[in-house]
Amino acid sequence: MSGGQQGGDPTLPLWRAAVLLRVLTLLFALGIIARHLAEYRRPWLALVMAGVMTVWTVAVAVRYLKPTEKLLAFAVVDLAVCCAVMTSSRLVLTPLQLHGEPVPLVPTVWVTGVVAAGAVAAGPVAGGVFGGVVAAFNFGVRGYVDTDLTRDLMLLVGVGFVLGLAASSSRRSAARLATALRTEAATAERERLARSIHDSVLQVLAHVRRRGAELGGEAAALATLAGEQEVALRALVSSAPTTSESGQADLGARLKLLETGRVSVSVPATAVPLPAATAGELTSAVREALANVDRHAGAAAKAWVLLEDLGSDIVVSVRDDGVGIEPGRVAEAEREGRMGIAGSLRGRIADLGGSVTLETAPGEGVEWELRVPRSR
């Protein structure tokens, strides 16, 4: 089960209800014991079991009201205690009370509390299993099967399953709410930073770009750099969060953040959802390819990034109009231990189960095609 996370366990109300059920059923069981005490074969043992149930109810109440990740193990111990108390009925009740004129077993409905505990602790399957175990002991202690006991079986298993579904739904809803709140907070902070950056850094970069272009010379080169950073920063602060609540990321939105004055990025109009880790690796590979453009393609080279969603495959092309690569130069770089292409680019794509294709010639620029399957 989910542990005691910040903000409290979302199933705590269900645990409180389970504890309340255990207390109410204990009172009922004590009343049944008092009603039939004089009729039992071993009244003293019935009183001992009443004490055991009372002490154990206090113990489970304390434990269940402080949910942790190890609560399922405690619930299994709780199940063992309940089944042991049920089994004691064979010593407490007379044969006639067990078979001929049935009298409720010693714990009577008190044992239903453990079914609720198992369901809340570990979900619908565990709830059904706990209910089945209690019903099996009910059959075993009685020594026969009839309609009433079969009805109890269906009720115990059904209640355990339904309560487990409720607990699982509660945890999922709490997780989605927490993710939504984090996304909302991140979006609000991003908007605040965007306003601050727009009012300060972007205005300064725009001023440097204009004045540098007017002055010419070395100032013009600085103006070009300022313009590229202005474009990149505007794309960054205007972009929406790229990761959804389900852990999917829009690869197109992430690639658009790489756009600058020298880099043009084209993506589909609709989102291209991928697991966040896959989108991150692909983005890093594209960033490495663009870094190679900066290092080797020439000062005036431009680059184009094209994202295509082919359904079963995702294809990203990175092309530049630079000086190109001499034949055999890539293999030589890998032999020399330069891991930019071999490690950061080809290694990343290989880890995703994809492939990398290179097309280049001296003076003809470079084109990388990164192809990754949507699902491995």
Rank of each mutant, 00 (worst) to 15 (best):
Thr11Phe: 03
Leu12Thr: 12
Ala17Arg: 06
Ala17Thr: 02
Ala18Pro: 03
Ala18Asp: 04
Leu21Arg: 02
Leu24Glu: 09
Gly31Glu: 04
Ala34Cys: 01
His36Asn: 13
Ala38Trp: 10
Met49Asp: 15
Ala59Thr: 06
Val60Gly: 07
Arg63Thr: 11
Leu65Phe: 02
Glu69Pro: 06
Val76Pro: 02
Val76Cys: 04
Thr87Ser: 11
Thr94Asn: 02
Val103Asp: 09
Pro104Glu: 15
Leu105Gln: 06
Thr108Pro: 00
Trp110Ile: 08
Trp110Ser: 07
Val115Asn: 11
Gly118Gln: 05
Ala119Asp: 07
Ala122Gln: 10
Gly123Cys: 05
Val133Ser: 07
Ala135Gln: 08
Val141Leu: 07
Arg142Glu: 09
Tyr144Val: 07
Val145Ala: 11
Asp148His: 01
Leu153Gly: 08
Gly160Thr: 06
Ser173Met: 13
Ala174Val: 10
Ala175Lys: 10
Ala188Gln: 14
Arg190Thr: 15
Glu191Asp: 14
Leu193Val: 14
Ala194Ile: 11
Gln203Asn: 08
Val204Phe: 07
Leu205Trp: 06
Leu205Phe: 02
Arg210Thr: 12
Ala213Thr: 13
Glu214Pro: 03
Gly216Ala: 12
Gly217Asp: 12
Ala219Phe: 14
Ala220Glu: 14
Leu225Lys: 12
Ala226Val: 08
Glu230Thr: 00
Ala232Lys: 09
Leu233Val: 13
Ala240Pro: 06
Gly252Gln: 08
Ala253Met: 08
Pro268Ser: 06
Leu274Ala: 07
Ala276Val: 12
Ala279His: 01
Glu281Tyr: 00
Ala285Pro: 04
Ala289Ile: 02
Gly298Ser: 13
Ala299Gln: 11
Ala303Leu: 03
Leu307Arg: 09
Ser312Pro: 03
Val318Leu: 13
Asp321Trp: 11
Gly328Lys: 00
Gly337Ser: 08
Met339Ile: 06
Ile341Glu: 01
Gly343Lys: 01
Ser344His: 15
Leu345Arg: 08
Ala350His: 09
Leu352Gln: 00
Gly353Thr: 08
Gly353Val: 12
Glu359Lys: 12
Val366Pro: 06
Arg371His: 10
Val372His: 06
